[in-house]
Amino acid sequence: MMTEVINTIETELNQTFDELFKWFDIDYELLNYTPDNKGWNIRRILEHISLTNHYLLMLISKGARKALERAKKEDFMGSLINYDLDWARLKVIGEHKSFEWSRPGHTEPRGKIRVAEIRQELEQQLKQCHTHLLALQRGEGVLYKTMMSVNNLGKIDVYHYIYFLIQHAKRHITQMERVEVEFNLGVS
């Protein structure tokens, strides 16, 4: 069961980051185009994703460390028998504008980070996620839960947090696609 959960997370993680990395290859005008609603341009969206990932990975790293410590002391294999990631509840996070949320100020993009640095940060974050999944491959990630206030998710374990990170990126990929559509309509 846990192998299937972890494989699904890894597959979506890779697919989502592959999609994110494609956005670094777009032309300069599209990258910096500000939509009519005065929302973020694609460059700022990518920066926001990397900033949010940074803070999520702080929680994920702490959770992974504590889960591994608990795994040394507790027999947790029985709790894995009926484990469910609750995929549907987390997939809502990946849908752009599916719920109201006031983002914390520390995830607000400033537009001052070079695009190459944002990409490098995202590459490092992907590696971190893989490292955590590898370290928690026997199911240890279920042993530590942390409160997630976004969309009233409540206490979620380390696997849920990693899947949340993926869904958050998907949410903003949709946002970038909308900016691209608007840009292309204006260009034609």
Results as ranks from 00 to 15, higher is better:
K72I: 12
H48T: 06
I173H: 04
Q128S: 12
H106A: 02
L68W: 06
S79D: 11
W87E: 09
L30V: 01
V150S: 03
I166G: 02
I93H: 03
Y161M: 12
T174S: 11
K62Q: 11
G78I: 12
T11R: 15
K66Q: 09
W40S: 02
W101Q: 13
W101D: 04
I113L: 08
A88Q: 10
L51P: 00
N184L: 15
S188L: 15
T34Q: 13
T131D: 09
E95Q: 11
L13Y: 04
L57D: 06
G154Q: 10
E12I: 10
H132M: 05
I45G: 05
L31Q: 14
E182D: 09
S61I: 08
V92F: 11
I26L: 10
I9P: 02
E182H: 01
Y33G: 01
Q120P: 01
P104N: 05
V181T: 04
L126W: 13
Y83A: 07
R89F: 14
F76E: 02
R89G: 14
M147L: 08
Y28P: 01
I162G: 10
L126Q: 06
I45V: 12
H106S: 00
H130V: 03
T52L: 05
F99G: 01
K155R: 11
K66D: 13
S50C: 14
E182K: 05
L185Y: 13
Y163D: 03
T3K: 08
T52I: 11
V150A: 08
M2F: 00
Y144N: 02
I26T: 01
T34N: 06
P104W: 15
G94R: 03
E47D: 06
H48Q: 14
F17L: 10
V142M: 04
F21W: 11
P35W: 01
K91R: 09
Y163E: 04
N152T: 03
F17D: 08
G111Y: 10
P35F: 05
T174I: 15
E69I: 09
T34C: 13
L90C: 10
I49P: 04
G139I: 04
L133I: 00
E121M: 13
K127D: 09
Y159T: 02
V158I: 06
E12Q: 08
I6E: 02
L85R: 02
K73N: 03
L165Q: 11
Q125L: 08
Y159P: 02
E4W: 08
E100S: 11
I93V: 14
R171K: 05
S102L: 14
G105K: 03
V181K: 06
E29H: 06
Y144V: 03
H172K: 00
N14E: 14
E100W: 13
Y161A: 13
R89S: 12
